[in-house]
Design a protein around this nucleic acid. Structure first.
Lengths: 209, 209
DNA sequence: TGTACATCAGTGAACGCGCGTTCACTGATGTAC
DNA sequence: TGTACATCAGTGAACGCGCGTTCACTGATGTAC
């Protein structure tokens, strides 16, 4: 207990500083917001000298990418869960959307970092493209489950894109004051998200095929 | 021509420094990206001392808000134009979306600032709420033009929200590499945007009423 | 029309700050023999 | 099992930097008389 930061008497060698730095960054992000995130602050939060992170990350950007990657993994999980628990494939489309927006609401700063780094790279993270386990492919496959023709690849991609963009847009505006009365009228934030997706009629999209 | 920055021999009193600072900020944003935007850089770009902006803006935040406000005005205009030029009200819903995303594509950094400040305030800019001329209201009224029941206020708001969120989402992801093959297949970026909105079936939403 | 003076809109130097990163270093660990 | 030594993962001081903002100032403008 000789160190004010760490609960345990921290050994000279940390054990898993990489992990600890990512966690510290996540904590700081949610507590102070993205603009407050400096490498020095992360090191401070992890109870380590400002130079220590350089043994685990090339630079600040690489740490941020790691945080974003962690976020995408969590989001993948939330989407998979929503899909698995939905009563019908058509429901699953809405419920995946709800889960997506809820994730963004619960981790707003990490969500922001996820998209900031994605925008910088002008691409979804690697996992989304070739990876059949990616969240993007899960959404696409849910359209197929709901009756979309798997052979009409282009239509399928457009549907998936449309659904994904809607969810992202809603995630970014979810906290706007202008929506408060809708949330109240519908009985809560989650109900509001669900109503928007139902209104979009994602399930109806597959009927066009 | 004694000053390297300004083309004219600049008088001691600028004339309209407020305007010039907003323009300089917009220029810098698009040229260098949002992270490069400092008050000092804006003053430099405008050919003025670092302290000069403080006669026109309380602080950096107030300048950014002014830039964002300018952006919203431009976006309003683009939406009004798209609505006016569309062949039918149903088309207008798609074309407003296309115009929206194109605006974001043409002014990516300003668009980002617009939403960053909006998110910080947790609200659309003032114009969107009570103001019947706001872009948001224009979209809502286009749904009515297209056949939505103006008395079902809640449904109407949900439709407008759904459309708006879709457009924002697409705007933020428009440049992702993963969409390149769709753009190519469809014959260009604008065609891709249009296809996504058609796929969303915004016009079909009003048919549910 | 002329002049005194208040006000306005700039200047440029300075402040303290936290940042990302580098450096020479040192303590801890693990491995070859 | 012990020991020499290479390697690893930290330290903490220092670097230069650009930032937002403040300050006392000064040149330009406009207005009252």
């Amino acid at each position: 207990m000789r160190d004010s930061q760490a609960a345990e008497a921290r050994p000279y060698h940390h054990g898993d500083l990489r992990r600890a730095l990512i966690d510290a960054a996540s904590r700081l992000l949610e507590a102070e917001g993205p603009s407050a995130l400096s490498l020095r602050a992360v090191a401070r939060e992890a109870g380590v000298s400002p130079a220590a992170p350089y043994h685990h990350f090339k630079d600040k950007g690489e740490l941020l990418e790691a945080v974003a990657g962690e976020g995408w993994t969590l989001l993948d999980g939330a989407i998979a869960k929503a899909r698995a628990e939905a009563a019908t494939p058509a429901d699953a489309l809405d419920e995946i959307g709800v889960a997506y927006v809820c994730f963004a609401r619960e981790n707003p700063a990490i969500y922001r970092v996820m998209y900031d780094t994605a925008r910088d790279k002008e691409a979804f993270p690697d996992g989304m493209e070739g990876n059949e386990d990616s969240a993007y492919c899960k959404v696409r496959d849910t359209f197929i489950d709901a009756g979309a023709n798997p052979n009409e690849v282009q239509e399928l991609e457009l549907s998936t894109t449309a659904a994904w963009c809607s969810a992202h847009g809603l995630a970014e505006m979810a906290n706007f004051k202008q929506f408060q009365h809708l949330k109240d009228a519908l009985g809560g934030e989650t109900a509001f998200f669900r109503a928007v997706f139902k209104r979009l009629g994602l399930a109806a999209i597959r009927a066009q095929d």
